[in-house]
Amino acid sequence: MSIGYFNGDYIQLDQAVVPIDERGHQFGDGVYEVIRVYDGKPFMLDEHLRRLITSARAIKLQVEQSEEHFKALILEAVQKSNLLDCDVYLQITRGIAVRKHLFPEAPLSVSMTVRPMRVIEDSVRENGVTAMFHTDERWANCYIKSLNLLPNILAKQTAQDRGCFEAILVKDGYVTEGTSSNVYILKDGTVYTTPLSKQILSGVTRMAVEKVTHSLGIPFIEKMFTPDELLGADEVFMTSTSSEILPIVKVDEKDINQGNAGELTLKMHKKFKELIK
């Protein structure tokens, strides 16, 4: 069953628990992670927790709990949910205090949900999804996985309204990433993706993709590429915790690989599933 957690207590998801002066609620003053659990085992949990702590430090959240504490908390919550395949959302905020911009003297708030895994149907993956280009209007520190996602939400909704699965963000003439994904192109048997910087999130699934490409003997190169280069690619795909490795077959109404899911992309996803096991 789906369950929630807030500052030490397990709760029902429809139970009201967040005070009006919670800084995550009022300012988006916090960070989060989404961890996927397969067969009761969190996938790449250490990498997720390292990124969580890195994000917390970047916004000057003084997290006293260790990564081992959060690991135990997640495992306990998954066990209580009785869900084998699920998505865990973990959030840390600057706590509960009277609203003002300066940091308060208050303990941090920790909340979490455990819900059944959102699964992308095999038919969707085999047929691929569509996307559109959208100007990257986000702030300068996208490497921080913060709660401030309004530009992402607006771009994602624009894509949805136009019948697309994802919006591919473009800044200064180059692709950065998706609204909730990393983006890759395949050209002449080589995978290219945007180099890590403050402008993009260091995706945990991206780390897995790098391992997968190496195991398959596919070169993996970090290199900036333009929208035109993306449209001219042999294959295009996106990755995230929830979408895993997902082919993109059309961008701005222009077919990629004649509108078919790429053979190498599907091969990488098959290898990714083996990595999970």
Rank of each mutant, 00 (worst) to 15 (best):
I92D: 08
M132L: 05
T130N: 10
S197A: 06
L201S: 09
I96T: 12
L90P: 12
S181A: 14
N148E: 07
R206A: 05
R125C: 05
P107E: 14
T93V: 07
R138H: 13
V88E: 12
L196R: 06
S202R: 14
E121Q: 15
H101L: 14
E210A: 12
C142I: 07
S180R: 15
R99F: 06
R115V: 04
T194M: 04
R125Y: 15
W139L: 05
L150V: 14
S109T: 13
K156Y: 01
T179Q: 04
V191P: 02
Y174R: 09
Y143L: 07
F220H: 09
V209S: 04
V209L: 15
P107R: 14
D122P: 11
I144Q: 01
K223C: 01
I144F: 12
S146R: 06
E121V: 10
E229K: 04
E166W: 14
A97S: 15
S111P: 00
L147V: 11
T190M: 03
T130L: 00
G173R: 02
C142M: 14
L216I: 08
K211Y: 07
T226A: 13
F103W: 04
S215P: 01
T93S: 14
E210H: 01
T190L: 06
L149C: 02
L149G: 05
L147I: 09
L147A: 06
S109P: 12
A155Q: 11
P195M: 07
S180V: 11
T213K: 12
G163P: 05
P195Y: 09
E177S: 10
Q199H: 05
R118P: 03
L201C: 10
D228G: 12
Q160D: 13
I185F: 02
D122Y: 03
T179V: 10
V191M: 00
M112L: 15
A155K: 13
L154A: 05
A140P: 06
F165T: 00
N148Q: 14
G203W: 00
S180N: 13
Y89S: 07
E137P: 00
W139F: 12
P151R: 05
F220A: 01
I144L: 12
V212Y: 08
L216M: 14
K100Y: 03
N152K: 11
P104W: 07
E105A: 14
A106P: 03
I92V: 15
L216D: 12
P219C: 09
V129W: 09
L154K: 13
I144M: 10
T193P: 02
Q160W: 11
P151K: 03
V204H: 07
K211Q: 15
I92P: 09
A140L: 14
I120F: 07
S180Y: 13
A131S: 11
S180L: 09
T194L: 00
L108C: 01
T190H: 04
A155Y: 09
R162K: 12
D188C: 01
P219R: 04
T213W: 10
Y192V: 07
V129Y: 04
Y184W: 02
V191L: 01
T135M: 08
G95C: 09
H134F: 14
D188V: 01
V209D: 06
K156S: 03
T213L: 12
Q91G: 02
A155T: 07
I144H: 08
R99S: 09
D172W: 02
T226K: 07
S109H: 13
Y174I: 13
G95M: 09
Y89E: 00
H134G: 00
R99M: 06
T130D: 02
P104Q: 12
K145M: 11
T135V: 10
I120L: 13
I185A: 03
K223A: 00
L230N: 02
